[in-house]
Computed example of a mutant assay.
Amino acid sequence: MPVAIPERLRSLFDGLWRSPGYHHLPDGTVTSIRQRPVPSAGAAYPVHTHLVVGSAGLDGLDPGRYLYDHENGHLLRRVAAREPATGWDIERARPATAQTTLVLTVQPGRSFGRYRHRAWPLWIADVAYAQTAVEFLITQHLKTSTGPGPLLRALLGVPRAACAQPWLSRGLVPEIPLAAVELPPSWTVDADRSHALATRRSPALSEFEQATGRRPEPRAVEVARLSGQGWVLGADRVETWSVPAQAPAQDIAGAVWQAHRRAASLCYDGTLSGRWRSRPISGIAAGHGRWITHALAMLPASGHRHTNDAQEACA
């Protein structure tokens, strides 16, 4: 059921998901895929935004569960009375909290259809970039948590994504809740940060390729070799995050979350400062006993010199 979006909440949703432009194909053809402030691997955009309004309400919104429609910019309230009949007993799982919580989920099929067995780190990647964007836009300290797990499913009152039938019976696609951000009563969106994020764009591959004639940054050489993505050689700066290849699964999962959260912070801070433009890199194979879980290829923003050029000028 559509409801009016309070102005403060609208500023947060717009800051995360609304940009004026559309993605282009390599030949310059404009697609129908709208660009968004928060990056997504392969522009798959599997992240969905839910809102759980606690007993205190939020700017006129009644307590309950809501879903934000990214495509149309609408906020939809879930009707609790309709859900038990289709196997969604959300009344039994209703959270006893006064606060409002933003919950980020992924529709796994959107990334799996393109990346297959390589999709699972990208589910975390896209949610980590979105979660960090919330913290970037709202400068107050925020309490966050990550999943997957029963606590986040209970917060949303949804079945497991692996149990597809309850979802399909309602004409829905399974979602995996992966992160939650508790919103304090006095939160606000920083207008300057929102503007910076709205104008953020990953540099095109052609921009990196045009710069490959310079001496490559050492980490760029390693990432280009392990990922098979030669364009990385044109990066002015490359940041990487890695974990031992034989680490326990729990440690690897934690490292994947940490890598993408740190990369997102670096990406957004570079945009805010006007100094760096960043392009995330995934799909990197393990080498020398370590797995680079994520990397960030960076080019200087307009008006800033290439680091390697400056080094050569001083040599």
Rank of each mutant, 00 (worst) to 15 (best):
W187T: 07
T132V: 07
A249T: 11
P244Q: 06
A313I: 10
A119G: 03
R262W: 00
L16R: 08
R118H: 12
A179K: 06
P39C: 04
I138W: 03
D269C: 01
L172M: 10
E207I: 00
R277W: 02
T240F: 03
L205E: 15
P174F: 09
G109W: 14
L155I: 02
I138P: 01
V189W: 13
S111M: 09
S40Y: 05
Q311I: 13
G274I: 09
V158Y: 11
P150R: 15
R78F: 06
R118D: 09
V103E: 10
D27F: 09
P203K: 00
R18D: 13
D190R: 06
Q258W: 02
Q246D: 15
G283Q: 07
V79T: 10
W291P: 00
R18V: 13
Y66D: 02
Q131L: 08
P184M: 03
M298R: 14
E182Q: 14
L61S: 03
G289E: 05
P2K: 13
T105N: 11
I252R: 15
R160W: 10
D251E: 14
A93Q: 14
L156Q: 05
I5S: 07
L137V: 14
I124V: 14
Q165D: 05
S111C: 09
V256G: 00
P280H: 08
P184V: 02
L178W: 09
R215Y: 08
P244Y: 04
W120D: 06
R215L: 11
H294Q: 10
P20S: 12
V181E: 13
W231F: 11
V38D: 09
P203Y: 02
L183Q: 11
Y129H: 12
A43T: 11
I5D: 05
R201D: 10
C267V: 04
R200W: 05
L156Y: 04
P218M: 05
A98S: 12
V181H: 06
A164K: 11
L178D: 01
A313E: 15
T105Q: 02
G287N: 05
S302I: 09
A154M: 05
L296T: 08
T293Y: 00
A313D: 15
D236K: 05
P166I: 15
T199E: 08
P216N: 13
T139F: 01
L183P: 15
S242Q: 12
Y129N: 02
A249R: 12
L51P: 11
P184Y: 03
I138N: 01
V103D: 13
P184N: 01
A98L: 06
